[in-house]
């Protein structure tokens, strides 16, 4: 009895293997008639989500001014230390980067800089085509990074929220701010 049961089990296993081969053949053949997931890159480009982590850009606020305030948080959070910048300040107190350099030959496109950015200035884009024959061409300066639009975040303007006054926005004109106090007033 034990011998018969063993033979039956082996037979089922063999049958399973054979059927699996047919199922595989069927699947493969079936894909001949389905739409391909791959695209003919580079002739064809894939559609990438806006949240894709590719080439880094610096964006502008809705007023068209540079969003970057040179706070250095992206640089310090960068695990490969590939961001270097220097703060400068215009005549009205607005901070901006004097230079802003990203060494893309070191960048691992982790997106931590974007997470750290308090002004939505630095953003990763769905562009990944950055291959170069010369590593030196992968060093991007501010003029290579700065784009003309606000990127993914259309409305945010850091200086409208922050208490520091800049040209065109005086003390007390930011969100949730009371007008400046007249310290010469005798009223309590």
């Amino acid at each position: 009895m034990a011998g018969l049961r063993q033979i039956a089990m082996q037979g089922r296993a063999v049958l399973g293997i054979v059927l699996s081969q047919f199922r595989t053949l069927w699947r493969v053949l079936g894909h001949t008639f389905t739409r391909a997931d791959t695209v003919q890159y580079p002739e064809q480009k894939p559609a990438l989500s806006p949240r894709y982590r590719g080439r880094i850009v610096l964006t502008r606020d809705p007023d068209g001014e540079e969003r970057c305030v040179a706070c250095n948080l992206c640089a310090v959070v960068c695990p490969v230390a590939c961001i270097a910048l220097q703060k400068a300040e215009d005549a009205h107190g607005r901070w901006y980067p004097e230079f802003f350099r990203i060494n893309f030959s070191r960048c691992i496109l982790c997106g931590l800089c974007e997470e750290a950015c308090p002004t939505y200035a630095i953003q990763l884009t769905p562009d990944f085509e950055m291959a170069e024959y010369d590593r030196r061409n992968m060093v991007y300066e501010k003029e290579h990074l700065l784009i003309d639009g606000p990127g993914k975040y259309h409305d945010y303007n850091f200086y409208r929220v922050a208490g520091k006054s800049i040209g065109g926005k005086d003390k007390g004109e930011a969100e949730h701010e009371a007008p400046p106090i007249d310290i010469h007033s005798l009223l309590p």
Partner: peptide, 15 residues
């Protein structure tokens, strides 16, 4: 230990 920009500070001069 938090210093930044090690691989970018002088990348414009020498990669």
């Amino acid at each position: 230990h938090r210093r930044s920009g090690r691989t970018a500070a002088s990348a414009h001069i020498d990669i």
